[in-house]
Structures are given as structure tokens and as C-alpha cells.
Amino acid sequence: MAVRAVRGAVQVDRDDPDVIFDETCSLVLEVIRRNDLALDDIISIFFTMTPDLASGFPAAAARAVGLTDVPMLCATEIGVPNSMERVVRLLAHIQTDRPPAMVEHVYLRGAVKLRPDLVRERRPGTRGPGGSTATG
């Protein structure tokens, strides 16, 4: 197995601890699902949030979905003028047999605009960017 990095981000509606918690849970679970990961496959996660988010810790959401033994760190993203607001990002180090080109990076909701080059077409019946379901 190789060590790979997977990126992800989600744009949240507002700076509210419950919203940050729920959306981060969705992001982490989607990274796990799309990359067929077991919890033990996740080595570490580094979270950042844009400076306009400060009411919750993304790592708390990751622990709530079962990542209790995974080292995690939260930080504030640099405040670049005119950049997207209300974004939680993650960089996870994982163990996988997938080659780098097959690792699925996950961008949800408005964060899809951050890296449209990494957004893949979803298979029918699977959740795509923004939580929509592909139908055909």
C-alpha cells in the first residue's frame, strides 16, 4: 500500500458550530466513501477554515464519525482578498492501493468552484458535488 494525499473542501452557509460540524461530517464521510477507505486507512487529517469561520472545530466532526485515533490539526486559512468565504478544507493522508490519478478529491457545495478540474463525473445513483444524485 502507498501513502497518498486526498484533498477536499466544503462551503458552509454560515459560521455556526452545528453547521460546521454537519458539513465537515459530510465532507469526511464523502472522502471515505469515494475512496473506499476503512477508518484505519486514514493516517492524518489537516483541516483549515477561512478566517470568517471560528465557531467550531472540524476535527470534532471527524472524531464523531469514528476517526478517534487519527491525528488531526485545525488551522485558519490565509485571508486572501476576494477569495471564497466560509470554506472548510481538508488534506488527508491515506493508505491505499489506488494510483494517484484514481484518488478522488472531494469538493462539496460551493467549494466545487475551487477546483473544477478535480470534480469527476459521478456514477448513476451516487452522490455528486453539492450532494446531488447522478441519474444517468
Rank of each mutant, 00 (worst) to 15 (best):
Q11T: 07
I45A: 06
E85Q: 10
G130P: 08
E121F: 00
A54K: 13
V19G: 05
Q95I: 10
V6W: 02
C74M: 14
L53Q: 00
P129E: 00
R63P: 01
R109P: 00
A111Q: 10
L67I: 06
Q95W: 15
K113L: 15
L27I: 04
P58D: 04
A111H: 06
L118R: 08
E85A: 15
Q95R: 15
V3P: 00
P129S: 14
E23F: 12
L73T: 07
V3A: 04
I20M: 05
V70N: 03
D117M: 00
G56P: 00
E121C: 06
D36F: 08
G130N: 05
V80W: 07
F57L: 15
P124W: 11
T126S: 11
V70D: 05
Q95Y: 13
L27G: 02
T126C: 06
A101Y: 03
R33F: 07
T135I: 13
A64E: 11
V6Y: 04
P81A: 12
Y107W: 13
L53C: 04
T24S: 10
R63N: 07
N82S: 14
V65I: 11
S83M: 08
V87M: 02
M49T: 11
R33N: 13
A59G: 04
D15V: 05
A75T: 11
A134P: 08
V119N: 01
G125R: 04
I94Y: 05
A60T: 14
D41A: 06
R63W: 09
E30C: 09
D16Q: 08
M1K: 02
D52H: 02
R34A: 12
G125C: 03
V80K: 10
D36M: 07
T68P: 02
R4V: 07
V88Q: 06
E77R: 12
F47W: 07
V70Y: 00
S26I: 02
I42A: 01
R4S: 09
C25Q: 15
R120T: 10
V65P: 02
E104M: 09
R123A: 14
V10A: 05
V103W: 12
G110V: 03
R115E: 03
C25Y: 07
A38D: 14
N82K: 14
V88C: 01
E77W: 02
R89F: 10
R122F: 01
L108M: 12
A60K: 10
V19C: 06
T135V: 12
P100F: 08
L37Q: 11
V87C: 05
V10L: 05
E85H: 08
V12N: 02
R89P: 06
V10T: 08
D13Q: 15
I78S: 10
L90P: 03
T133M: 02
D22L: 07
I32A: 06
V70T: 12
R14I: 10
T133W: 01
A38N: 10
L67M: 09
D69L: 15
G125W: 04
A5R: 15
T96E: 02
E30A: 08
R98A: 13
M49C: 07
V12S: 03
L91R: 11
G8K: 03
P71I: 11
D36H: 13
L91Y: 04
R4Q: 15
L73Q: 08
M84E: 14
R89Y: 14
E77Q: 13
L90D: 01
Q95N: 09
T50K: 00
H105C: 08
A59F: 05
A60P: 01
A64T: 06
